[in-house]
Write a protein that binds this DNA or RNA. Structure first.
Lengths: 300, 300
DNA sequence: AATTATTAATGGAGAAAATCGATTAATGAA
DNA sequence: TTCATTAATCGATTTTCTCCATTAATAATT
């Protein structure tokens, strides 16, 4: 369908209001001829007479008045649309879809979410827990706005801001021969006892990377599905594993019968980072979010 | 305020729907570059990002989706406006403001209005009774759509369609010396007994014109304010007067004790006509109305 | 790793439109 | 009659819109 332009509608509204082409033209900041032509085109387009005019008088027709009223509505809706677009959005307000990997989620979120929520009152946070690769796909597809992942991993074209870093600790069953002492070198660990998370968890790869071990050294049947179950296996004496500091400080894990020793390999062993698409339009907001989380973690 | 064009909004709606510039362009029957430019201008105008795009993907922002929804509403309102304008209006439907002079109104309307109303079911007729000059002013001002008047009078620039014509009769008190007989010449009438309507009624002028009398021949104190009161004065023996055929056939007047004789001056003495502004946009409707009234009067 | 295909942005040329200024014709008023 | 007002009209100009061709970036495929 061929639509009139908003400009034509605006002209109509003004002429109907003033019943005078010259004055209406002045109010619209155009010449009378412009207005005259525009109205004629509008009438032509609609196939109906909107104004009855003599050289002396302008009388809107019933239809002209009706349409001018509708036109007023249309124009004011459009004005509102413009205003809506220009609402000075508070930073980090509205919906934000955040993905988090499972080896970070249960330890980080309880620490930072209350603080984040109180800092950004108008933030509506939607959380999705999944493994790195899946999160990256969803992020690329636009289903997520950002994700919290652990470096190192292949960023692709994504941008990021690291907000935390931590070491790994080795967890032994209570009473294990190696369970006592200070920093221990990964070389000193018995490969055959190592328990890891199942494939897909980046923590698995990171742990192996730290101690230069090969994944093949582990028994598939003992791959854990979460850090909680993994710790319970360690506590049950079925093997040893690596844990990020964050997990060790967690209350739940602390209740289990395990002993932890730091690694003598120094490092930060894993970096927590907030990532987003390079084309994302609210980068500034996300930087604020990363800053906020960092601040909360540093305060303890 | 600077408003976006409906075209820009339409482009936005399409791109948000398809998430693909090329496809959206195709659907809009323009090239991709046209669409691309238009969206960029829209974003510039609104001062906000509506779409997040890489070379590979297009992801609408929250704002983009919101505004596209609003835009859809605006566009469909505009489409409805166009449809409203093109509604094939039945002839003589809707409001019609009709003026009628007092010497026609009480005799004509009861005869024709029922028929008019049943012929044009959707007609909303607003009636105004006043003297010719006042009706003409209101007609010119656009307060009336048309008027029923009696010729002859100065039409000015108005257009008209005559739908009836009638003679005048002379009315005498029952028992008046001249009350019996056939056609009578106006010259034979006693000037001093002539009663007329007050000034402003065209019937007064028409009556005087028929018999070439001067208005000054009449006593001001006996000028009637309506044909009903005038007839009662005649019945009371206070004088004679002219009546249009229409009034003579009226039931109310027939009950009064008066006698009527035709004038020997032949010819239609007054013509009933429907008048409208030359610029009026529903002339065709009014011609139908005049035709209709004529038909009803001819049937009796 | 190199090649190919896809896609949005960009630049320049041409077409379409909107607007203006000047004039005309009609209308009322003085 | 003459004058003032006003909407329509015409031609010229400016602005906007659109297209085509090309580019740069990105994935997918070889």
């Amino acid at each position: 369908m061929n639509l009139p332009t908003l400009r034509q509608l605006h002209y109509l509204v003004t002429v109907v209001e003033l019943c005078h082409f010259g004055q209406a033209a002045e109010r619209c900041f155009v010449t009378q001829s412009t207005l005259s032509t525009a109205i004629q085109e509008l009438e032509g387009l609609l196939g109906a007479q909107l104004l009855e005019r003599t050289k002396r008088k302008v009388i809107p027709t019933k239809l002209g008045i009706d349409l001018a009223n509708k036109a007023r509505d249309i124009i004011s809706m459009t004005e509102r649309l413009v205003l809506d677009a220009q609402v000075d959005r508070k930073p980090l307000s509205g919906v934000l879809k955040l993905g988090v990997i499972p080896t970070i989620s249960p330890f980080l979120l309880p620490k930072v979410l209350p603080g984040v929520r109180s800092t950004f009152q108008d933030l509506e946070l939607y959380l999705l827990e999944d493994q790195t690769q899946n999160l990256l796909e969803r992020l690329s597809a636009g289903e997520l706005d950002c994700a919290i992942l652990a470096l190192p991993f292949d960023l692709g074209g994504l941008e990021q801001q690291v907000f935390w870093q931590e070491d790994f600790l080795v967890a032994f069953p209570a009473g294990h021969p190696l369970s006592e002492g200070g920093p221990i070198a990964s070389k000193a660990l018995p490969d055959s006892e190592l328990l890891l998370l199942e494939k897909g968890h980046c923590l698995r790869d990171h742990a192996l990377a730290v101690c230069h071990m090969k994944a093949v050294a582990n028994r598939a049947s003992f791959q854990g599905t979460s850090l909680y179950t993994l710790v319970q296996m360690v506590a049950g004496g079925q093997g040893i594993t690596f844990l990020p500091e964050m997990a060790v400080n967690d209350e739940f894990l602390a209740q289990n019968q395990i002993a932890v020793r730091p690694l003598s390999e120094k490092g930060p062993h894993r970096e927590l980072t907030l990532v987003w698409r390079a084309s994302y339009h609210r980068k500034a907001d996300l930087a604020l979010l990363a800053d906020c989380m960092q601040g909360l973690l540093e305060k303890g």
